[in-house]
Amino acid sequence: MTLQMITANCLADGLVVYQAADDSWCSLIQDAEVIEDEDALQARLSQAKAAEGNQAVVGVYEVEVTEDEGCIRPVRLRERIRAFGPTSHPEFGRGQAPEDLSPTTISG
């Protein structure tokens, strides 16, 4: 199986969160749990859905990621933008954004 993470938005403030290994919800993708097999994914997803029922988060789903020398990065661009913030407003970014999300990478 490809590597996965579980994500959602925090119910109260709407911000992007990821499920950490200790069941807490963290805002940085580097702090999230990387899930490596299907059984674990299903188990963690059902725990996360339970958190929806506790008004912690909303809209739980899994995100495919890659890990390269400890650097976690979602596969899909949409998820990279969710993880690191709007590229049009880098001042609201979170964590270390990969180079392909930098607005200056592609020259005008």
Binding site: L77, R78, I81, P86, T87, S88, H89, P103, I106, S107, G108
Partner: peptide, 19 residues
């Protein structure tokens, strides 16, 4: 796609580059 859940690509950065 910098903000919108429905988007399939970014649009603001293209406008910024043209500008």
């Amino acid at each position: 796609m910098d903000y919108c859940g429905l988007a399939t690509a970014r649009s603001i950065p293209v406008a910024q580059r043209v500008s």
